[in-house]
């Protein structure tokens, strides 16, 4: 099976009490996601990203069109063992603690007791919640809630992971950790579909993107291809002097090209923040 997700002519219309069309949330969406890809849904608020994920999970039903997830319809419960879903907020039971939460979802997924125990230890370690495993989720901070939500996804060891705004509301360090987990899933050959309106996040982790606006697909393709500015070449070099740069400019103009700019590349603010925090933590531990 090459395509993990196949969507054809998908349409979702929300109706009012009198069954009159109220909102067209998704309008004739066609898309395919291949195995092992990290696919990003981009779009402003209310563009239909979350609705598309809900349709893929069978939480709501399409007005028309077809959806096949892992070769089956989304309402087929048999495929759910292989799907992990992290909603935009932690929609877990506040009266349970982390251990009980993971044990409950592990049981629902049919993971045998011994393996469940082993997996719970592993995922709590990955998300860094071992110290708070006996605390009720209602007492968790936003960051911790996102981590436990991610933990229930990892617990299943799913083939397909659906993430709705996975880093929204998180500080840059936790956000980076979540992105690392997503990249880790890719290296394990898992397929990841994430919806986000944080463009840098999508650019960092996604192979392919689809841009939605008012329920319509307005752009789709490979991230590298879409972002490549054709007709321009970027050279990054180190150890050059000012006269070397002048010589390069001469070479460019003698070759018929046009020199546009030169300067020192800048680190991202996210990178700087994480580096500073890590340095501080390391100096504290030393």
């Amino acid at each position: 099976m090459d395509h993990v997700i196949e969507i054809k002519g998908l349409r979702k219309v929300y109706r009012d009490f009198w069954y009159r069309p109220k909102v067209i949330a998704i309008d004739r969406l066609d898309m395919e996601v291949k195995k092992g890809e990290i696919f990003g849904f981009l779009g402003p608020n209310g563009s239909g990203k979350t609705t598309a994920l809900k349709l893929m999970l069978g939480l709501i039903f399409p007005t028309s069109g077809k959806i096949r997830i892992l070769g089956k319809v989304p309402t087929d419960v048999r495929i759910k063992e292989q799907i992990g879903y992290m909603p935009e907020e932690s929609y877990l039971y506040g009266f349970l603690n982390a251990d009980e939460t993971l044990d409950f979802y592990g049981k629902l997924n049919g993971i045998p007791r011994a393996r469940r125990k082993e997996r719970i230890e592993k995922v709590l370690d990955i998300v860094g919640l071992k110290h708070a495993r006996k605390r009720r989720l209602s007492d968790y901070s936003k960051g911790m809630s996102r981590r436990i939500s991610l933990a229930q996804v990892l617990l299943k060891d799913p083939d397909l992971v659906l993430l709705d705004e996975p880093t929204i509301g998180l500080d840059p360090v936790v956000s980076r950790e979540v992105k690392d987990v997503i990249l880790g899933l890719k290296s394990e050959g898992k397929t990841v579909v994430l919806s986000s309106h944080l463009l840098s996040e999508v650019q960092t982790v996604c192979d392919k993107i689809a841009i939605l606006c008012e329920g319509k697909l307005i752009k789709e393709g490979n991230v590298d291809e879409l972002l490549t500015v054709n007709g321009e070449t970027e050279i990054v070099a180190s150890g050059l002097k000012q006269e070397d740069i002048s010589r390069i400019k001469d070479v460019i103009s003698s070759s018929g090209g046009k020199f546009i700019s030169s300067g020192h590349p800048k680190e991202t603010l996210e990178g700087l923040f994480i580096k500073s925090i890590k340095e501080k933590q390391e100096s504290k531990s030393n």
Binding site: L57, Y85, N109
Partner: peptide
């Protein structure tokens, strides 16, 4: 509370 979203992402009808 939308807890059913996560519940329905599991193999439970």
């Amino acid at each position: 509370k939308k807890t059913v979203y996560v519940l329905l992402s599991y193999p439970v009808s």
